[in-house]
């Protein structure tokens, strides 16, 4: 049975697409056949972050409207063998993204893939509700900042009331809190909410933290999910998140200010 995971947040700009790209790539790197779907009709960006924008021919709306087959619309990732991307439409009307249509696409994908990652648009409108509707698990991407935490709380309410699992009275969606753009030095100064603050407020299981990292912008500039930038802190953080998602017990990192070693102090970083 394929697992369906929605990457969601409510607020825009917190790192949903960055997380979708690296999380899906991470699952594929671990040998799992994975597809990542962009649900942001009209504002698609996953293709840019994954570096396949010039290879988009057909999109999810074409599949829903039977204008192309699923295989014609899926784009094979250039970094991982096990990874495919299903882009959103950039020009079509958002209303074309119907629940029935998406269900058909997901059911067809589920025959072939182990993991279906849904990159949700921001907001709580139809696109976001459609992205979360079929989810078995949700990664709630939150910045340690008041607006993001409040919007995440709102999304948690929707996961618990508007998803298929909620409506059909099934086992609830498994929720995971991912705190991104974390700056431990600012937390230490009392300028930024700590991971513990966010955990205490949102009260869902914590899957990890991605530190604020220059590598994220550099990776998106070149169309490479940041998880592939070996040695980058954000890459290690996403690899940990994927491992924990797959059931491994990994100690949390990037929570505290890195202590500079003696040699580094003497000779510079």
């Amino acid at each position: 049975m394929a697992r369906i995971i929605v990457i969601t947040s409510g607020k825009g700009g917190v790192g949903k697409t960055t997380t979708s790209a690296s999380f899906a790539a991470g699952l594929a790197l671990r040998g799992h056949k994975t597809v990542v779907i962009d649900f942001d009709v009209g504002l698609r960006n996953l293709d840019l972050i994954m570096g396949c924008e010039r290879r988009v021919v057909y999109d999810i709306i074409n599949v829903i409207n039977n204008e192309s087959s699923l295989n014609q619309s899926l784009i094979k990732d250039k970094h991982c063998d096990n990874l495919y991307i299903l882009p959103a439409s950039q020009t079509r009307d958002k209303d074309a993204l119907t629940l029935e249509g998406v269900e058909r696409v997901i059911n067809e994908l589920a025959k072939d893939f182990e993991y279906i990652v849904c990159d949700s648009p921001a907001g709580i409108e139809k696109g976001a509700l459609t992205a979360l509707y079929f989810a078995d698990e949700a990664i709630v991407v939150t910045n340690p900042e008041v607006a993001s935490v409040r919007d995440s709380d709102r999304i948690l309410g929707l996961l618990a009331s508007k998803s298929r699992r909620a409506i059909e009275n099934l086992e609830p969606i498994r929720e995971h809190l991912l705190v991104t753009r974390y700056a431990p030095e600012r937390v230490e100064k009392g300028e930024m909410l700590s991971v513990n603050d966010v955990k205490e407020i949102l009260r869902i299981p914590f899957i990890g933290v991605v530190p604020e990292s220059q590598a994220v912008l550099q990776a998106s500039n070149s169309g490479t999910p940041v998880i592939h930038v070996n040695g980058a802190d954000a890459s290690d953080a996403y690899k940990d998140v994927v491992a924990r998602f797959l059931g491994e017990d990994r100690p949390h990192r990037f929570l505290d200010v890195q202590k500079v070693g003696l040699l580094k102090r003497l000779f510079g970083g």
Partner: peptide, 18 residues
């Protein structure tokens, strides 16, 4: 620090909204 203020404001508004 302002983080403490943020935490308190969030706790109040979310308790209200929930």
């Amino acid at each position: 620090g302002s983080a403490a203020v943020a935490r308190e404001r969030l706790q109040i508004i979310l308790a209200h909204e929930r």
